[in-house]
């Protein structure tokens, strides 16, 4: 059984050989590649703490069999900032107190980045809340999270308009 795969992780191409087909993307990142930003909360697709981007789309990495994602491009929270400059969503979570304990935050931020690029929610807080329903925050920082997503989305779209002008 050939269990080798190629992934592009945060822009870097990685050749990986698995010793077991059961490894999920989450376990691959955390246990074998030292990328511990994505968190294992429920490990069953219910809490969203493990959210990463695969080919630009947010998914639950705990329910993704790594071997099946051969050839994919993956972005984790570690790949979001530009050097010392935080991604606008990261900055917005700080500005709006979008967390307390921080355990769910990498998943929240990756989910928000996915949400903004999906372009379905606009500036409607209700649509943002609905689109973030796959991310649980046990501390209940939802108000700050919603404000952070709306603020980051406004800044990102203003930035795009500036670039286009």
């Amino acid at each position: 059984m050939n269990l080798s795969l190629t992934l592009t992780i945060n822009g870097k191409r990685r050749e990986i050989v698995l010793d077991d087909p059961r490894v999920t993307l989450l376990d691959l990142l955390r246990e074998r590649l030292d990328l511990t930003g994505a968190k294992k909360g429920c490990d069953r697709g219910q809490c969203g703490a493990c959210t990463i981007l695969v080919d630009g789309r947010r998914i639950n990495s705990c329910l993704a069999l790594a071997i099946s994602y051969d050839g994919a491009a993956i972005t984790t929270i570690e790949g979001l900032a530009d050097g010392e400059t935080l991604h606008p969503v990261q900055q917005a979570f700080i500005d709006h107190d979008g967390f307390q304990c921080g355990f769910c935050t990498p998943g929240q931020i990756m989910s928000a980045v996915g949400l903004i690029s999906e372009g379905q929610s606009g500036d409607d807080a209700e649509r943002v809340r609905e689109a973030m329903s796959g991310n649980i925050c046990r501390c209940g920082a939802y108000n700050g999270i919603t404000e952070a997503v709306l603020d980051a989305r406004a800044k990102i779209s203003a930035g795009k308009e500036r670039d286009a002008a």
Partner: peptide, 9 residues
């Protein structure tokens, strides 16, 4: 149905 993450997969 489900969540945005699950619908994407």
């Amino acid at each position: 149905g489900a969540s945005a993450q699950l619908r994407n997969a």
